[in-house]
Simulated scan of single mutants.
Amino acid sequence: MKNIFLIIVLAILSSCAQSQSKNLKITAGKKIKMANEAVATFGEGCFWHAEIVFQSLVGVRDAVSGYAGGSVANPDYESVCTGSTGHAEVVQVYYDSTKISYQTLVKAFFASQDPTELNMQGNDMGTQYRTVAFYKNESEKQIINAEIKRLTDSKKYSKKIVTQVMPLKNFYPAEDYHQEYILHHPENGYVQNVSIPDFMKFKKEFKGNFKN
């Protein structure tokens, strides 16, 4: 009986997710570089999810899935998944700094995840899914730390924020099949039941300027 109940619940959740996805337009990244282009790098669990989060914001040209924060050059997905390379799944965000600020991107980063989860996001577990914000200069570092302090002081979370704040040394793009994954594979079970519901929650709660 319990198994039957579980199957029914999963079927209902899947049906709801599919209904949501039919009304959701996923914004694809663009390849042509912008005049005022800047770059930001964030890790917040599965990079499929992070990709659509940032690409949904006005001023962002593209979010490229990849790996950063590790000690091995040119890692691949299989090696990153073992946790032995030290890399996190991240997105490299290309944005127009005259249309969206780095501070807004940082706010979106924290709003689209649970920054109190250590080495995991939801059911995705491992150091590759850790919450991490990379900075390229002192100004970016200060903005990240200021947002951590603001969230901590607001007592939004009952647990401590564990987001790593690290200098960006290297970014390695992920394999082609990971890029724009949700756009190309909307029927995938993980996409339907995890990625899209998480994104819909973010879009409902974040006070940002969305493309659609």
Rank of each mutant, 00 (worst) to 15 (best):
I4Q: 14
I8N: 09
L10H: 11
L10F: 14
I12F: 15
L13V: 11
S15F: 15
A17H: 12
K25D: 12
A28G: 10
A28P: 00
K30F: 12
K31Y: 13
I32D: 15
M34A: 12
A35M: 08
A35H: 06
V39Y: 13
A40F: 05
F42T: 02
G43L: 02
G45I: 04
A50I: 03
A50H: 03
E51A: 05
S56Q: 14
L57I: 14
V58Y: 12
V60I: 10
R61L: 06
R61S: 14
G66L: 00
G69M: 02
G70E: 01
E78R: 10
E78Q: 09
S79G: 00
S79R: 11
V80G: 07
C81G: 03
C81Q: 07
T82C: 10
A88N: 05
V93W: 07
S97Q: 15
I100S: 02
S101G: 11
T104Q: 14
V106C: 05
K107F: 04
F109L: 01
F109G: 02
F110I: 02
S112C: 08
S112W: 00
Q113Y: 08
P115V: 07
T116Y: 11
N119F: 10
G122K: 07
G122A: 10
Q128V: 08
V132M: 03
A133K: 03
N137Q: 07
E138F: 00
E140S: 04
E140Q: 13
I143V: 15
I144R: 04
I144S: 04
N145F: 01
I148W: 02
K149H: 02
K149D: 13
D153F: 04
S158T: 12
K159I: 07
I161K: 01
I161Y: 07
Q164F: 08
Q164P: 11
P167G: 10
L168W: 07
Q179A: 04
Q179N: 05
Q179M: 09
Y181A: 06
H185K: 03
E187H: 08
E187V: 02
Q192A: 03
N193R: 13
I196G: 01
M200S: 11
K203Y: 15
K204L: 12
G208A: 05
F210L: 11
